Amino acid sequence: MSADAVMTVEAFLAKLGRLAEQALSRYGFSPDATATLINYSENATYLVEDPVQGKQSILRIHRRGYHNEAAIRSELQWIDALRKEEGVITAAPIPASDGTLIQRLANDELPEPRHAVMFTYLTGREPSEDDLLGPFERLGAVSAHMHRHSRNWRLPNGFIRQRWDHHGALGALSIWGHWQNGMGMTPAYLKLFERLSETIRKRLDAFGTGPQRFGLVHADIRLANLLVEGEATKVIDFDDSGFSWFLYDIGTALSFIEHRPDVPDLVDAWIRGYRKVAPLTVEEEAEIPTFIMMRRLLLVAWIGSHHETNLARGLGVAYTAGTADLADAYLAKFS
């Protein structure tokens, strides 16, 4: 068992914060620079501020065991290509003083090495959930830009990212854990979700994985990973990017809000934005509910395997129960 697994979350984050502070000298920051934790889920993300140099940036320390160095390098290659070739505004990785983009961090408190990447700081604000139609149209447009690039991009040698197909999301591999271990799981839920998972699998098999439908996607393009500033739409956090159906991205856009009564309107807004940039067939549009439910069931698994995070704690058992309601409605129409 690793040292991380036998300490409280609070103690671990305190130690990780000290590791982050120690890493700043590798990037040439002054001794007065600070690293403040702003998010902890898959990884720990820090706002780095240097009052002497007047600079801000973002430090991401990866959790152990999720991505190896080759996969992280592949993520950074796609980010770079999206900025340069498709005009997508996203944070650029910043090299350390030794010229490398990926650092390995360790100290006496946390001796097991973990990867870290520094990114440029992007200005802007996360869209408000009070008025989502405009943001969802932006989401659709920027998703289409990324998908268009993905369809035409030649992958670099050694490129490797995870695969968010049924096997990787809901099946035996289950990258984020098994939905069977979701919070508040009951025998009735297990039976219902097994039927849901199998229906999703059959429909995705029929939908197919042709190059116009399946490729490299952001895989977590929800509002928390979108910044808006004037007419500019900026995308952050490609840590989950991998290979999946392009329409999986609309499922991720609705993460944690799939139950809202205005979801059909949000989907329409997303489609409207998407079609301003790239085509979307009527057949593809009709299958969007499958990708929403695929993501919803995957999040049941994520909550169960990440119960220590504040987000998972806040959603908990109620999210599993809400998923059952949505599953009943979906299966009534699609099974």
Rank of each mutant, 00 (worst) to 15 (best):
R18K: 14
Y46R: 05
L315V: 08
F334M: 14
R213N: 10
N43G: 05
L101R: 00
A318V: 14
D239H: 06
A106C: 05
A23E: 05
D268Y: 02
W176Q: 12
K234N: 04
H167P: 02
N310C: 09
G17N: 12
A172V: 13
A232Q: 13
D237C: 08
H62Q: 13
M118P: 01
G28V: 09
A20H: 03
P111K: 04
S57F: 01
N157G: 09
V300C: 09
H145F: 06
L311V: 14
H167M: 11
R104M: 07
I160A: 15
T8S: 15
R201I: 01
L204I: 02
D239N: 06
T100Q: 01
W78R: 11
N157M: 08
P135Q: 03
L110M: 03
K202I: 06
I94M: 04
G134I: 12
E194Y: 05
H167V: 14
L76K: 01
M183T: 12
G210E: 14
D50T: 03
T100N: 01
W164F: 05
H62S: 14
E126P: 07
E86F: 04
L170Q: 05
Y40A: 12
K276S: 10
N39K: 15
L16H: 09
D237N: 05
A14P: 05
I303E: 02
D239T: 02
D325P: 04
H307I: 11
R213P: 03
R18A: 14
L47E: 10
R114P: 00
V267K: 03
Q56N: 08
A70S: 12
F12L: 15
R222T: 03
A35W: 12
T309Y: 02
V117S: 00
R73E: 09
H218P: 09
I175S: 08
G316M: 07
L110S: 04
R63T: 13
S244Y: 02
R151S: 04
N43S: 06
I102Q: 00
S150P: 07
S97L: 11
E194A: 14
L132P: 10
L280H: 08
K333I: 13
Q56I: 00
R64V: 11
P289S: 00
R104Q: 12
R260E: 04
L155C: 06
L59F: 08
I257W: 06
R161M: 07
T45E: 05
T186E: 09
R83K: 11
T290P: 02
A172Q: 14
E231Q: 11
V277T: 13
D325G: 09
R151Q: 12
S174D: 13
R195A: 11
A332C: 13
L192E: 12
G124L: 07
A33N: 10
A91S: 07
T8M: 10
Q103C: 00
L155H: 10
P187V: 09
E287W: 00
K191V: 13
E198A: 08
L24P: 08
E285Y: 05
F29R: 11
I38S: 10
L101C: 00
P127I: 10
A116L: 04
L216Y: 13
S150R: 09
Q77W: 07
G210N: 13
R154Y: 04
L47W: 07
L247M: 03
A321E: 15
T309M: 04
L298Y: 06
K84R: 15
L47Q: 10
V6I: 15
H147D: 10
I58T: 07
A286P: 07
R63Y: 06
Y248D: 02
D239F: 04
L216P: 03
W153L: 05
L297Y: 01
